[in-house]
């Protein structure tokens, strides 16, 4: 089958440097106008989403100033005085005695979850895809996807009971004749408990999108592979994995952009006086400070800091993805 160049999709002019840089070249400009006119309906498609983002995301952005102002809840945002000096709340945060600890914990918890939590759903989807018995497959799918619905409060309650001195895990350990381990008292155990309970909750759910992608692989490819004498394992490596790659890379990039977003609820519930050094993250820290004296400006400043770090990471990872593969966010 001769591949003819599709004038709409594959016109080499799209690849040209000038087009990419958007330099106003007369030929390019008219081409763009033609495309806009021809595809006017696509602009309607994107309109609702655009309106949504403008109204609910861009307009409220003027509130970012709170981070730089001495925001008094009584006066408005615009009429509150500027902070003296303007970076006062950032300084407060950076000079706090727990700043480095919280930063370190946030990043390490996040990277740990991210590393394990990106790969496992893919592996699970691949494994499930290979199971032949359809009832077995459905049973496992349902079982792995249900944990996603257990609320955080219940999950931590269950963890406390199962890993307590007389709980299930220690009873299993006792079967092997060993002494009970006080998991909840060790601050080294905190991050493992946190990450793996999160994995338990999220893997099944996360594998859904990969499963959907796998269902789209054409049977012809498999048949061709069988003819070529490929084993099961080889089929997985050469057909399934490439099929999942685009989605996987996108998820990786998006994940990189949320590294600083470790939520406070689960960590706060799992914190005890003992594991503070390992468990205090930026969000719980700011939550505690805010609860005693409502400190809007401080939490806003910290939020902004988080966002900037996330953005830098996102751009970096996207650039890497773009040069290594053909998939990237932009």
């Amino acid at each position: 089958m001769d591949k003819q160049i599709n004038p709409i999709y594959e016109n080499p002019i799209y690849e040209s440097k000038e087009f990419k840089k958007g330099r106003l070249h007369r030929g390019n400009f008219t081409k763009k106008c033609v495309l806009i006119k021809r595809n006017w309906q696509l602009y309607l498609f994107i309109l609702p989403a655009l309106a949504y983002f403008i109204i609910f995301c861009y307009i409220p952005m003027y509130g970012v100033q709170i981070a730089f102002k001495n925001y008094n809840g009584g006066a408005g945002i615009t009429s509150s005085p500027w902070a003296e000096p303007i970076y006062k709340y950032f300084k407060m945060f950076f000079e706090g005695a727990w700043f480095t600890t919280t930063l370190k914990n946030t990043i390490s918890l996040s990277l740990y979850s991210f590393a394990v939590g990106s790969i496992l759903p893919v592996v699970l989807a691949l494994m499930l895809n290979e199971a032949d018995n359809i009832y077995f497959k459905k049973a496992i799918q349902n079982a792995t996807y249900i944990p996603h619905f257990i609320s955080t409060v219940v999950l931590v309650g269950m963890l406390n009971i199962m890993f307590s001195r007389t709980g299930l895990v220690n009873q299993l350990i006792a079967l092997f004749g060993k002494e009970p381990i006080l998991f909840l008292m060790k601050d080294k155990a905190f991050k493992h408990l946190y990450v793996w309970s999160g994995i338990w909750q999220g893997t099944g759910w996360g594998s859904i999108i990969y499963f959907a992608a796998l269902s789209n692989v054409s049977v012809e490819l498999y048949e061709a592979a069988i003819i070529d004498g490929a084993s099961r394992f080889q089929k997985v490596i050469h057909i399934n994995i490439p099929a999942l790659m685009p989605t996987f890379i996108i998820m990786l990039i998006l994940g990189a952009g949320s590294i600083m977003n470790v939520g406070y609820e689960k960590v706060l519930l799992m914190q005890t006086d003992l594991n503070l050094k390992a468990s205090e993250v930026i969000s719980t820290y700011v939550y505690k400070v805010g609860i005693i004296h409502s400190q809007f400006s401080l939490s806003s400043a910290v939020g902004l800091f988080n966002n900037v770090i996330n953005l830098i990471l996102l751009v970096t990872v996207n650039r890497i993805a773009r040069s290594v593969s053909s998939n990237s966010l932009w």
Partner: peptide
């Protein structure tokens, strides 16, 4: 990545 935060969103 950047949002105004709770109060401005509530205002809108």
């Amino acid at each position: 990545f950047f949002s105004g935060g709770l109060i401005p969103t509530y205002l809108v």
